[in-house]
Amino acid sequence: MTIAIGDKLPPATFKEKTPDGPVEVSTDSFFSGKRIVLFAVPGAFTPTCSLNHLPGYLENRDAILAREVDDIAVVSVNDVHVMGAWATASGGVDKIHFLSDWDAAFTKALGLDIDLSAGTLGVRSKRYSMLVEDGVVKMLNIEESPGQATVSSAAHMLEQL
């Protein structure tokens, strides 16, 4: 079953790269008492993710945060080192959180997993964006195709906020 507006996020633990090494980030600690924009990509360093989706959130970061949003995070089914390298390569370090869902546990719990084995990627996340308030989904935008970043884009999120 796919997560829906009004649902509480399932408990999960991400990994995030820091200057001191990888740290665990639980959904409870990250989302509790905060208003967070979360977006997901099928893979770090993949074309649509790196050339369209992520740059939109980096470029619109200040405008999003100005709309009473506490933080922005991107999640992907990649290991923490890949996510850390992507943060560095994209200029996103200290701007948004790059959360590794290394085993796809969070993605599967949301019901937003997709098998991209035909493209040699294996199990990944569908592309989506959501607004989460105190752990509860308030807005949810799921792309029909993993190669598109329109309804889950930063521009669309800004319109909704």
Rank of each mutant, 00 (worst) to 15 (best):
K95D: 05
I114M: 13
L121V: 04
E159R: 14
S76M: 04
G119Y: 13
G43Y: 06
M1N: 12
A109T: 04
V151Q: 05
D94P: 04
G147E: 10
I142S: 04
T88Y: 13
N78S: 03
P10H: 10
I96P: 00
M83N: 04
Q148M: 14
F45M: 09
L51R: 14
R67I: 01
D103H: 08
S32E: 14
D101H: 03
H53K: 10
L158C: 09
V151Y: 01
V132G: 00
L58E: 06
I114F: 02
G122Q: 03
E59F: 08
K17G: 01
I3M: 06
G6Y: 05
F45N: 06
S145T: 13
D101Q: 03
S32D: 13
P47M: 10
V69I: 15
Y57L: 10
A155N: 12
I64L: 15
S125C: 05
P19L: 09
L131D: 01
E143M: 06
S152W: 02
F31Y: 15
G147M: 11
T107K: 03
D115N: 13
L9Y: 05
A154H: 03
D94H: 10
N78M: 05
V74H: 03
T150K: 14
V74L: 08
T48K: 07
A85P: 03
P42Q: 06
Y128N: 01
S152D: 02
E59T: 13
D101Y: 03
M1P: 12
G43M: 08
N78Y: 05
A154M: 07
M130I: 02
P19V: 08
P42I: 05
A4F: 07
Q160Y: 07
V41H: 08
E133C: 11
A109V: 07
T18W: 07
C49L: 07
P55S: 10
E144P: 04
A85V: 00
V23R: 13
T48H: 08
L58T: 02
D101F: 02
Q160G: 09
V137W: 06
E144S: 15
R127K: 11
D7M: 08
A73I: 00
E143I: 11
V137P: 02
E59Q: 15
V151A: 07
L161T: 03
T120Q: 14
G92R: 00
D115C: 08
K138E: 12
G147P: 02
P146H: 02
I96Q: 00
K8Y: 11
T88A: 15
K126S: 10
N78R: 00
F14G: 02
S90R: 02
R124T: 02
S129Y: 04
A44K: 04
S152G: 08
R35C: 12
Q148N: 15
V75F: 02
V93N: 09
D115Y: 08
K8D: 11
P42N: 06
S50N: 13
D115A: 09
R61G: 09
L51W: 09
V74I: 12
K126L: 12
A44L: 10
F14C: 01
N141H: 15
A12R: 00
N78A: 03
